[in-house]
Nucleic acid binder design. Structure first.
Lengths: 225, 225
DNA sequence: CAATGACATGAACGAGCGTTCACACAGCGA
DNA sequence: TCGCTGTGTGAACGCTCGTTCATGTCATTG
């Protein structure tokens, strides 16, 4: 569960482990995306790798364990990437919000399958595994909320319903939801490319936040990522 | 499959039919909401009504048929209510957008369970049933897109990425998603009441649409619904 | 070469699923 | 009173599921 072993085609898994763990994981992502985790059978997953059902249990303790590893690693990747995106963005909250939204859009639009699996199927997990993923999701959400709070405190943002924590939470949920759900409605070959999509979402996010920089048209083509 | 028969407590089903169909439907909504449609068994649904599994098939042809009736009727209710909300709103696109958002928020925040079931589980349907529900969803989406298009054509709105149909579609998807997903993140006893929530969402929607009326602070406490 | 460990097999398991059906019974019109 | 219709029962069906395990194979290692 450590080093990447090779870069598979494009939708590379954010998953360490042996080659077979990765093949199984990639097959699982495809199938979970297409049919949902509950309706996907162990036989389908192993069959897609040319194996028989029992083989899965040499690599994962259960079907839920496989789902857990996938969902957890996807969330962890987003969390850490978001942390560094905020850290390396410009000092202003508007720049940080822009960098955050760009990252989320890049993930959901660029890795639609894994993004949708992570955000749709994590509810299938049970017990401590579910709590662990929820904690990572909380961390992601709190990073965005923090940016919005900072911006509203220093007057850069003007949130709906006031500039208190409740307003920041609501704006945070709305903005992250907006980005995450690209993977839900986006068609296979969406006519708008990812960079343009990022621009539009940054623009909408700044508007939701009531960014004062919008009058000076920041937010269109913001510099980073 | 026509007239309401009696008004059950608060989360009344938008479903016609016999009393027992309604009891089964209400039990199914609860269970589908809690565990998902796929993981809910016929035995759970009938057991919640004090019946044995076979009884369900006197009222529905299959478990999927039950899900279909529920999901279809919920969608139809939203669709027709949205049509009349737009028709009875003020003539301006900003008023119509406000009325639309108020309706969606009222549905998702006020009937969280049925809203979540309709929006999460419709993908479980297969064949023509799925297509029928998708058509209703398209109708709902088109109503909102139409309001945004009209507003952008007459200069009331300024959409992200230009005022063409693609921009209206994107804004429409974003706004309806934002409303629909209240039922996903809202806790059991959310501290903000529904009317206040409606105000905030109308405010955010007008901002997403780039409504010029915002500078004259329309959108806060817009008059209707 | 011998021994070891990793890995896949294929058959089987127990459980639970959606669904069916012969039957019982209750209410009601004729 | 008879028979019809609507509805619930309880047992059973065929099937698929996740999972287990004894067994076999093969590459690596000492």
């Amino acid at each position: 569960m450590s080093a990447q072993f090779e870069p598979p085609p494009d939708d590379r898994l954010p998953m360490g482990g042996t080659a077979l763990q990765c093949r199984l994981g990639a097959a699982a992502i495809d199938l979970f995306y297409a049919h949902g985790a509950q309706s996907t059978t162990v036989r389908q997953i192993t069959g897609a790798c040319g194996l028989t059902p029992g083989a899965l249990y040499n690599h994962f303790t259960s079907k839920e364990h496989l789902l857990y590893v996938l969902v957890r690693d996807i969330h962890l990747a987003v969390d850490s990437e978001m942390a560094s995106a905020i850290a390396t963005a410009g000092p202003g909250p508007a720049d940080q919000l822009g960098a955050t939204v760009r990252l989320l859009v890049a993930h959901t639009a660029g890795h639609k399958k894994r993004s949708r699996v992570a955000n749709r199927e994590f509810t299938v997990l049970t017990g401590p595994r579910r709590e662990e993923v929820r904690a990572i999701r909380r961390s992601i959400r709190d990073r965005l909320t923090g940016v919005l709070m900072a911006g509203s405190e220093q007057g850069t943002f003007d949130l709906a319903g006031g500039n208190d924590r409740a307003a920041a939470t609501l704006a945070s949920a709305t903005i992250s939801n907006m980005c995450v759900h690209i993977s839900e409605w986006m068609l296979e070959n969406y006519p708008i490319g990812t960079p343009d999509l990022q621009d539009r979402y940054v623009f909408m996010a700044l508007r939701i936040a009531g960014a004062d920089t919008l009058n000076g048209q920041a937010g269109r083509r913001s510099p980073r990522e």
